[in-house]
């Protein structure tokens, strides 16, 4: 496959970036999108041009590090995949592909296609944990009865890998789906009940502080989410938030 790539280049956080056009040739349709970028970078190095910086780690859809807005969609045109799981067979020979970083005030570009996602870390630090001591005297898992449905719901929410596709794709750059998943994974389990009220209040407050937008319920986030996190978790977070706001004693 021969392709024309329009890639966002930006030297650092402060400088203004822009789209650069690169041609790549002889790409296998079986190559992953990141492998195609590797080939492009090899070409750029040979030409004496600085290679394009982009994020990746596991390259098997687990870590949530790769984060590219490809041809107008988070993680590209395929569904339920991260960028590393996207294959070139999803594109046509001769196609022009736009490759941009996530766009959000709360996730500024650091360099080229890499964004600063520490806002997600700060949201997690504000409440996305349980203070149950799990070292030593660990209880048998079956000693704590949990309804199957709640276990499934918590597990589905915990599938969130924090890639940020929900923020990138939301027209308001809202982080509601991410925060909702992190709130819900504990809210459905008994271990999460102790800090449940403070957790949702703190995490929503931190989300607002970071400058993410509001939810308009377009549902775009759940369509683009590589782990298919449902927006029903946003409703769950809203319920948790309302309940905590009305009854929290702190």
């Amino acid at each position: 496959m021969d392709l024309t790539l329009k890639v966002w280049r930006q030297k650092n956080r402060e400088e203004k970036g822009g789209l650069e056009t690169y041609k790549v040739t002889g790409i296998s349709e079986h190559a992953s999108f990141l492998e195609m970028l590797d080939i492009m970078n090899e070409q750029l190095i040979k030409e004496g041009t600085e290679p394009v910086a982009f994020d990746y780690d596991c390259r098997e859809g687990i870590c949530g590090t790769c984060s590219l807005y490809i041809n107008g969609e988070a993680h590209g045109p395929d569904r339920k995949v991260t960028t590393c799981q996207l294959h070139m067979r999803m594109f046509k020979d001769g196609e022009t592909i736009y490759i941009e970083p996530w766009r959000s005030a709360a996730m500024p570009v650091i360099k080229d296609l890499i964004v600063d996602r520490s806002s997600f870390d700060r949201i997690q630090q504000s409440g996305g944990f349980v203070s149950v001591n799990t070292s030593g005297n660990t209880q048998d898992a079956n000693a704590l009865p949990i309804p199957k449905m709640n276990a499934d719901l918590a597990f589905d929410a915990a599938a969130c890998i924090g890639c940020g596709a929900c923020v990138a794709t939301c027209k308001n750059s809202s982080a509601m789906l991410f925060v909702a998943a992190k709130v819900s994974q504990f809210a459905y389990l008994p271990q999460g009940q102790v800090e449940a009220k403070q957790r949702v209040l703190n995490m929503v407050e931190q989300m607002d502080k970071e400058g993410f937008g509001n939810c308009t319920n377009t549902g775009a986030c759940e369509v683009e989410c590589p782990k298919s996190i449902s927006i029903k978790y946003i409703a769950k977070m809203n319920r948790e938030f309302l309940s905590a706001s009305c009854s929290s004693e702190s």
Partner: peptide, 15 residues
């Protein structure tokens, strides 16, 4: 919340 817009965006694909 999004001061810089995408050069290529296809919102109709998901909403």
């Amino acid at each position: 919340a999004r001061p810089i817009k995408y050069a290529m965006d296809k919102p109709s694909e998901n909403s």
